[in-house]
């Protein structure tokens, strides 16, 4: 399996990482170099094995449906890049340019 420039553009879009053409081209070779090492995994017989997610064999603990929440020692406006009336503000989504769309 080899990564193509289209793959790089696709995953860069999924990851919201703006990547220009030159960088995309170099990423193709960087990722392929790394992934070439990974191909050794395909030679391992793992039939009948469960994929382990996390090594601790614990069950998730369940918390009581009860406050209080973990407090913030500083309010949202102290760390929000843009805040107004308690809301976080972001540039409007392009799919919502007309204000009537919900």
């Amino acid at each position: 399996m080899a990564v193509t420039i289209d793959d790089v553009r696709h995953i860069a879009a999924l990851a919201r990482l703006g990547v220009d053409d030159a960088r995309a081209a170099s990423l193709v070779s960087e990722l392929n170099t790394i992934l070439a090492h990974m191909d050794v995994l395909s030679t391992v017989d793992t039939s009948g094995l469960d994929a382990v997610a996390g090594i601790g064999a614990f069950a998730a603990p369940l918390g009581a449906d009860l406050g209080p929440p973990i407090p913030l020692v500083r309010p949202i406006e102290s760390f929000a890049p843009q805040e107004r009336d308690g809301f976080f503000l972001v540039p409007r989504l392009s799919t919502h340019e007309d204000p009537e769309a919900a």
């Binding site: 843009q82 107004r84 009336d85 809301f87 976080f88 972001v90 409007r92 989504l93 204000p99």
Partner: peptide, 13 residues
């Protein structure tokens, strides 16, 4: 996401 509250911005609650 509230899209119609502030001009050009989406407000997130």
């Amino acid at each position: 996401s509230i899209h119609d509250r502030y001009p050009g911005a989406t407000a997130v609650d």
